[in-house]
Write a protein that binds this DNA or RNA. Sequence first.
DNA 1: TATCATAAAATTGGATCCAATATCCATTTT
DNA 2: AAAATGGATATTGGATCCAATTTTATGATA
Lengths: 241, 241
Amino acid sequence: MKGQVIVSDGKLAQASVFTSLKGLVDGAAPRFRTASEYVEATLRAAILSGRLAGGLALRQEELAEIFGVSRMPVREALRQLEAQALVDFVPHRGAVVTEISADDAADNYAIRLALEPMALSLSIPHLAEPDFVLAADLIAEMDEEADPGRMGELNRRFHLSLYARAGRVKLLLLVEQQLAAADRYLRFHLAAKGREHMSQQDHRAMLKAAGERDVPAAVQVLEGHLRTAASTIAAFFASRG
Amino acid sequence: MKGQVIVSDGKLAQASVFTSLKGLVDGAAPRFRTASEYVEATLRAAILSGRLAGGLALRQEELAEIFGVSRMPVREALRQLEAQALVDFVPHRGAVVTEISADDAADNYAIRLALEPMALSLSIPHLAEPDFVLAADLIAEMDEEADPGRMGELNRRFHLSLYARAGRVKLLLLVEQQLAAADRYLRFHLAAKGREHMSQQDHRAMLKAAGERDVPAAVQVLEGHLRTAASTIAAFFASRG
DNA sequence: TATCATAAAATTGGATCCAATATCCATTTT
DNA sequence: AAAATGGATATTGGATCCAATTTTATGATA
């Protein structure tokens, strides 16, 4: 079997990462329609969570064995991830997990800074009681949460809860993608500053302004929130990597 | 051969569309590294240009024959297009070209209205003489151009020329995608209002403001430009589709 | 004639197989 | 000892093959 190859040389660390992949999505997510969707979702979660680090080469055959499928669904999944800029195809070398850099982080925040105020502005007039309740619940959950990965998800869902009534599905789709990508950087943010810098007061202020249908105030808080996060992460990259 | 099947029943019209596909990209574009890239580029151009209308089912085997490849590169290309929201996979039915609707157009313009002012603001301080020359040239070309398809391309390139120095590659990538998607609607715009409504005075005003490094003025013109286009297209859909 | 059951055709997702090509390592040569 | 060279090995892109499932056509029956 090729399994031995994985642990034979310097790839042991990778092997332990890979072998833990399979169960990653199984718990929360529903069953997938196709194998490639399953592989794609699992790999995407692993990359966004940082479990598969930038620069790592993902070889099709190896992944196929781990997931218990042929190389074909793996190939399709990797192509999808390529379209999402999560991997680069290098001929005869494999799909390489894209590196995250200060520049990428800046890009991500510039995009969010453009899209999210738009989404929020469109959504606020149509938000209803259940939306406010959900948002408040998520803030409360974040107060309790310690795990950084789960924290990222809660943060994402909070933001989306306020944008949900924007009525523009493709806009929201883009926002979701950018929020998911932001998780890759948020981990550094939390590591650098601790979870108290999750800016829960910003979240509360946004919710309050939204409740009062005060679009300019909500947008102002959101923009400050994003700019703060962006500069924190920029500082982190400047100091370390 | 299956070729006969294509022309045997009611699919004749589709066949003539399909068979003209192959050469679509050959002229301008360089050779592609892989077959799937070639297929993808050709299909994308055909969909964005409106040559493959919304609702049309793209069957893998049929495309494979037309392109002279097996079903596999076709499959990969279609998956890529799915990621770009240009087709939907319907099980056992084929990849269906997504319909364009008033709602989609509104989404597209909302996204552009969020992203492009950001790109323009970031870019203006770094624009240099060659950028202004290129932009001016493109305006002049548009004055002469009659063909709607080519007009769309010129318009796209003009906008990009002013955003080019934003220094945020992923942001620009998104902008490019949205501009390409906008071509699908621009065709209706031109059909409805004639090419004099291409708002060349807006283009000139944007270029002037950019030349004076007047970011707020340039952004204001751009926003007005996009809002006008959006409402024109909304009116078009309201009257017709 | 309309409707429902049943069989045939078509289409996809996935597996396996094949050819082309780049990488990597050992050996040789300077 | 370092560099060049040649061949084994690994890896990918593409072709062909197979199974599952849906759609569509056909025909029987009320």
